[in-house]
């Protein structure tokens, strides 16, 4: 049985304040594929992830996410699509003075619910608490269920953000710079966690990263992004050192032969 690809971008272009951020980006993410987006700062990685997360509409090109074009959907269908995409933002975007379980439960606010959300966020049923505890256990912090979010360490907060995405029961998991500010050992742990979660929940995973070696160890495919253009799109094992040099070269050094 073959699944359709999770995301397809065809020649996507995007300008913000007249400055091109993405230019003719084409890529495909297969079902259950793990993809890393590599590139120097300002290459457009976050923007690309937001396009994949159906939160930013491109100016040109075709977008197909989970078999739908988000920008042709009616608003409630767009919300439905978004509720199937788990996005772990770089700054976690948690509400610091809510409890951990509330921040995780917010993952399901994208579903239809109206006033029922109010009950879910204030008086959770035992069965909901079990589910919340369950996802927190999956990311390894089940005991922090009732802690106040602001008292958590940065790493724990990131896990809460991941748990919130998992609680969405998504069909696609995106993570923006999940290892941007942690030491190498932690980075390894976080990547292993994300990959494990993607495996357990049978999700395609797209991660933006700086570290080439980390990407090669944990993902199936790497996409190099530079100046808003795709520089390479290769299986991780085929990535050569030359390509990396080219990706991270400082401006003006591009042509320097090695």
């Amino acid at each position: 049985m073959s699944f359709p690809p999770a995301c397809v971008l065809g020649k996507v272009g995007l300008k913000i304040d007249g400055r091109p951020i993405l230019e003719a980006v084409s890529l495909q993410v297969g079902p259950m594929e793990r993809v890393a987006i590599l590139g120097p700062s300002g290459a457009g990685k976050t923007t690309l992830l937001r396009v994949l997360g159906a939160s930013l509409a491109p100016d040109q090109g075709a977008v197909q996410i989970l078999d739908k074009n988000p920008w042709q959907l009616k608003s409630h269908h767009l919300r439905e699509l978004r509720s199937q995409i788990g996005f772990v933002p770089q700054d976690h975007a948690l509400v610091p003075n809510l409890r951990v379980w509330q921040n995780v439960a917010a993952g399901r606010l994208g579903r239809a619910g109206g006033l029922r959300h109010l009950r879910r966020m204030t008086l959770p049923r035992a069965q909901e608490l079990r589910a919340l505890h369950g996802v927190l256990e999956q990311v390894g912090i089940g005991d922090l269920l009732f802690a106040t979010t602001s008292t958590l360490s940065g790493g724990e907060q990131q896990r809460v953000a991941i748990a919130r995405s998992l609680y969405q029961e998504p069909a696609l998991l995106l993570a923006d710079e999940p290892v941007a500010s942690v030491d190498p050992t932690r980075a390894e742990q976080v990547m292993a966690l994300l990959v494990r979660l993607a495996d357990e929940n049978r999700l395609p995973l797209v991660v933006s990263l700086h570290d080439v070696a980390l990407a090669q160890r944990h993902t199936d495919r790497v996409i190099g992004l530079r100046g808003g253009r795709v520089l390479f799109n290769l299986p991780s094992k085929e990535l050569s050192a030359t390509k990396c040099e080219e990706l991270y070269a400082l401006p003006g050094q591009e042509e320097t032969p090695r």
Partner: peptide
Amino acid sequence: TRPFLALENLGATRATALLFGTLPRALP
């Protein structure tokens, strides 16, 4: 505004995102 935007991105309506993303932060 970050929690508000995050909730909108996971499919919450604007009212829901305001109620659970913006209001709790301002509540104290």
